[in-house]
């Protein structure tokens, strides 16, 4: 019955969340270099202070259609599994991360939402647009349904 903190963000009309521990930083206005021959859910590469970050568009991966890049577009840069290990994170958190430095493209950032693990329910069967393997669970917030993203599956290379 633990309290968990999630970073929430919008992609299209959906409100998604990932464990806040996984978030390294959030970048606005970045230049993304496209990589030809890469899969469609890969937006490209970003130069983050000398390091190369692979940017993924989760909306394409999970099947809710691509997003347009607007002024509000942001990129959530995630921590690598090495970073999480050196910070002594829980194993289940480390499981969710990958070795490479990746970022995900979002339409807008939301607040940090604290929820009790009691409140997490299984995803309802009627969310047909999003494949259930990408959702760990849902939380009913006051106005919206908060979808907890299975970031590991989103970052999977299939």
């Amino acid at each position: 019955m633990a309290e968990l903190q999630y970073a929430s963000f919008f992609i299209k009309d959906f409100l998604f969340g990932i464990n806040v521990v996984l978030v390294r930083e959030i970048i606005t206005n970045a230049q993304i270099t496209q990589v030809d021959l890469s899969k469609d859910y890969i937006c490209g590469l970003m130069n983050l202070r000398g390091q190369i970050v692979t940017i993924i568009d989760p909306s394409i991966k999970i099947g809710i259609g691509g997003t347009n890049t607007s002024a509000k577009t942001k990129y959530i840069i995630l921590k690598t599994s090495k970073e999480l290990q050196s910070k002594g994170a829980d194993n289940n958190i480390i499981q969710q991360s990958v070795e490479d430095i990746v970022g995900i493209k979002i339409d807008d950032i939301g607040d940090i939402i604290t929820i009790d693990s009691k409140e997490i329910e299984l995803p309802p069967a009627n969310i047909t647009e999003v494949d259930s393997k990408y959702i760990v669970g849902v939380v009913k917030l006051k106005e919206k349904l908060f979808l907890l993203l299975n970031i590991k599956n989103v970052l999977n290379t299939d």
Binding site: V35, D36, L37, S38, K39, I42, L45, N47, G50, I52, T54, I56, E99, D100, I101, V102, T157
Partner: peptide
């Protein structure tokens, strides 16, 4: 080095800034 996502493309040996 390029991430595993891009290794699949097969034609890139890496990236540079």
């Amino acid at each position: 080095p390029i991430s595993s996502y891009l290794k699949q493309c097969g034609c890139y040996a890496g990236a540079t800034i």
